[in-house]
Amino acid sequence: MTAIETRAPVLDSPRVTTAESAVSIRGLTRSFGGPAILNNLDLELEAGSFTVLLGRSGSGKSTLLRTLAGLDTAPAGTVSVPRERAVVFQEPRLLPWKRVWRNVALGLRDGDPRAQASAALDELGLSHRLDAWPLTLSGGEAQRVALARALVRRPKLMLLDEPFAALDALTRMRMQALVAKLWQQHDLTVLLVTHDVDEALLLGDRAVVLIDGQIGADIPINLERPRRHGDPDFIRLRQQLLATLGVDEVAG
């Protein structure tokens, strides 16, 4: 057992960047004792962009995201991110002992926390669940609360680590549409980790693939929105991404 460590190491010392580039990573290296998981990685995210981060399981996607969230130290390299950032993980990670609106309002410093939480929950279609206990929510509802909790902080950077992976297909499609809407309506830079190529093509305007600790492929997605699976360009990009990930196309 280890002692409770509540303070994230780099949370208090982010280097805030200029407006053109919301995120700038240079020479980021991270290892957990063994070979480097992230190896001299460079990545720039344009403000207001929607970038999808792909990569095989264990390739270091979460590690990279956690570094940007200030949850992991970067022993080598420089990372600059806006101070206003929010994270949504694969699990909702709500506090079960706080009612939904209190979860959303947690850590808000000024103004009326309940009103702000209520507005955010309203935007995610959860105004009727304001006073519910988190453990009574469905998986999709809980994840929307997590999104509201992120959104209510008016982040410049939204970090999403496979936020839909645990949801059923129908709920996932709704959530994808919801995230697309939020990104369009708010001034957000989004970095979405996913292993789902279709999700990447539905949402992102750029796909970066993590290979051997570096950005091994950087593919712009210039498809018109709303996007359609049947679109020839969609299919072409899909094959390109799958090939980059080393997946046999026959399966798809």
Binding site: L71, R85, G107
Partner: peptide, 20 residues
């Protein structure tokens, strides 16, 4: 995981202990 999520919400050390 919950502590980690809470630590991204701008809470002080004392607030995390008290709330989480």
């Amino acid at each position: 995981k919950i502590i980690e999520a809470a630590s991204t919400l701008n809470l002080t050390h004392a607030e995390i202990i008290w709330n989480v």
